[in-house]
């Protein structure tokens, strides 16, 4: 078992003990989105020359009032362990393990713009119909998509982005 999976299982166990697995998983996912959107923050939290207590303080300041103490503690634990760069992968495992515990599958959705509730609902229903199980949508805004949506469920990628169409156009030349 890899360190990433070990951390994910440990964090899931702590979330289960706290009694709010889904909430913690969602908060972790949102924090990871913020982290992926800021290279400076990622570099700061990954910088081992900065004291661990200082890095933890940064996490607490960022999440104070926006996430539960459990989520803050879990993120601090990963950052203090010097695995801030692996946080995204760890969080994805936590989210998938959380969904699996409820017989659901996670669909990571990247869109150029935010999806409305109606769009999320319809997309979730369409994906659930396709994979044959309930879906947990994890939507993130990614300008590199340009337009459209890219959905990843497990190892399956459903790419309906303008970026991929432009790439196909480039390859067609």
């Amino acid at each position: 078992m890899t360190a990433v999976k070990s951390y994910a299982q440990a964090m899931l166990a702590i979330a289960e003990a706290d009694g709010d697995v889904e909430g913690v998983a969602d908060e972790l996912f949102r924090f990871n989105q913020a982290l992926e959107g800021s290279n400076e923050l990622t570099m700061t939290l990954s910088d081992r020359t900065i004291d661990a207590s200082r890095r933890s303080q940064i996490v607490e300041d960022l999440l104070d009032g926006k996430a539960s103490n459990t989520t803050i503690g879990l993120v601090s634990m990963v950052v203090n362990a010097g695995r801030a760069r692996e946080l995204g992968e760890i969080v994805n495992h936590v989210v998938q393990l959380s969904a699996a515990g409820q017989d659901r599958q996670v669909a990571f959705v990247r869109s150029a713009v935010a999806l409305s509730d109606d769009q999320q609902s319809r997309l979730s229903a369409a994906l659930a119909k396709q994979v044959g199980s309930d879906i947990d949508l994890k939507v993130s805004v990614d300008p590199s998509v340009v337009g459209g949506i890219v959905t990843t469920i497990g190892d399956t990628v459903i790419d309906g982005s303008v970026r991929s169409r432009l790439s196909q156009l480039r390859e067609a030349f």
Binding site: V113, Q119, R122, A126, K129, Q130, G148, I149, V162
Partner: peptide, 17 residues
């Protein structure tokens, strides 16, 4: 246009399921 692209995507997934 974004909305149209997203709706088209959702319709295609629904149509292929």
């Amino acid at each position: 246009t974004h909305g149209s692209l997203i709706d088209s995507y959702i319709e295609q997934i629904g149509a292929t399921s």
